[in-house]
Amino acid sequence: MASNDSDSGRRPVIGLPTYSERTRFGHWDVDAAVLARTYIDLTERAGGIPVLLPPIGTPRPELVERLDGLVLTGGADLDPARYGAPPHPATRGLRLDRDESEFGLFALARAAELPVLAVCRGLQLVNVALGGTLLQHVPDAVGHTDHSRSPGVFTVNTVTTVPGSRLADIVGSEAKAHCHHHQAIGTLAPGLTATGHTADGVIEAAETRDGPFLLGVQWHPEENPTDLRLMRALVDHAAQYGKERTP
């Protein structure tokens, strides 16, 4: 299995879930499995081998056996039924096929003790999968739209980190976060610790303190191509994971 062994030059394999969208390119207008290129580029620059994972129903354990690390990528709102809530009028664009695939993928990753970095929707998925709930429309709680001002435009917010946390060890006491989310963690799941907040109190990061690397951020590190710290942390843990399980 791949590992980031500096002597052998091998790099860890990082899984990146994609989503199904109607896509136009060249002469074609077809359903496709897509993901923003920024995720791929950041993974490669941080030293990993990016592998795209399509939403194909419940994943099989053999898939995770081929990975050294996993990034749960951003995207559409989760189905509120997953955390026992009726949908808010602003909750829309659900991708039930993606929910099924990625909840299954995360369960397999946890069972295999695979290092995981969760981004935006990915953090929300981790929180729900571990027993938490979501705030379905952040402006209702904070009274402003600074976390997602307009479609397709990222807002740079300041996130303050918790001293002594994995996140603080990686990015320091503050992070400049490229945000585009109208949902966030509501009730924090058991086993997770909130380790990053904006001034309005919104949880912008959460992690596990013990066990395999699991860190989620509500912002999009792939939108800052000069800052490799979060992805490099995942790649480093993935490299060690690959090395330890390689005969």
Rank of each mutant, 00 (worst) to 15 (best):
S101K: 03
S101I: 06
F106R: 11
A107L: 04
L108Y: 03
R110H: 07
A112M: 08
A112V: 08
A112K: 10
L114T: 01
L114H: 01
P115A: 07
P115S: 05
C120K: 00
C120F: 00
G122P: 00
L123G: 01
L123P: 03
Q124W: 04
L125W: 00
L125K: 01
N127I: 00
L130S: 03
L134D: 01
L135W: 05
D140Y: 09
A141S: 09
T145N: 12
D146I: 11
D146E: 14
S148T: 02
S148M: 07
G152E: 04
T155M: 11
N157W: 14
N157P: 13
V159E: 15
V159G: 15
T161R: 10
G164E: 10
S165L: 13
S165H: 12
S165E: 08
L167N: 05
D169P: 04
D169N: 12
I170F: 02
I170Q: 02
V171P: 08
E174Q: 13
E174W: 02
A175L: 10
K176C: 03
A177K: 12
A177I: 13
A177S: 13
C179R: 01
C179S: 12
H180V: 04
H180M: 09
H180W: 01
H180E: 09
A184E: 04
L188C: 03
A189M: 10
A189T: 11
P190R: 10
P190N: 11
A194S: 14
A194Q: 08
H197R: 15
A199P: 05
A199Q: 13
G201P: 10
I203T: 05
A205F: 01
A206C: 02
E207S: 07
R209Y: 10
D210S: 15
P212T: 04
L214S: 07
G216A: 09
G216R: 00
V217R: 05
V217E: 03
H220T: 11
E222F: 14
N224Q: 14
T226F: 10
L230T: 03
M231Y: 15
R232H: 12
